[in-house]
Simulated scan of single mutants.
Amino acid sequence: MNKWVTEGLHGDLRTSYGIKKVLFDNQTEHQNLVIYENEIYGRIMALDGVTQVTERDEFIYHEMLAHVPILAHGAVQRVLIIGGGDGGMLEEVLKHKSVEKVTMVEIDRTVIDLSKEHLPMICGNAFEDPRLDLVITDGCQFVENTSEKYDVIIVDSTDPIGPGEVLFTNNFYTRCKACLRKGGVLVTQNGVPFHQASELKSTLRYFRPIFAEATCYMASVPTYVGGAMAFGWGTDQQGLKDISLDVLEARFRRAQIDTGYYTPEVHRAAFALPGYVQRLVA
Rank of each mutant, 00 (worst) to 15 (best):
N2P: 03
N2R: 12
T6S: 10
E7M: 11
E7Y: 08
I19C: 09
V22S: 10
L23F: 14
N26S: 14
N26I: 00
N26P: 02
Q31L: 00
L33R: 12
Y36P: 06
E39G: 01
Y41H: 07
I44M: 03
V50H: 14
V53Q: 04
E55A: 09
R56G: 06
I60H: 12
H67S: 03
V76H: 01
G84A: 02
G84E: 03
G87R: 07
L94C: 00
K95L: 09
H96L: 00
S98M: 11
S115I: 06
K116H: 01
E117P: 00
E117M: 10
I122K: 03
G124S: 05
D129K: 06
P130Q: 09
R131D: 09
T137D: 12
D138G: 07
Q141G: 07
S147K: 11
K149P: 03
Y150G: 05
D159W: 12
Y173F: 15
Y173A: 01
Y173W: 08
K182W: 01
G184E: 05
G184Q: 04
V187R: 08
G191I: 11
A197S: 15
A197D: 10
E199I: 15
P209E: 00
I210C: 02
G226R: 14
A228D: 11
A228E: 13
M229L: 14
F231C: 04
G232N: 04
D236Q: 05
D236R: 00
D242N: 12
I243G: 02
A255C: 12
Y262P: 08
R268S: 03
A269Y: 04
Y276E: 02
R279Y: 07
V281W: 01
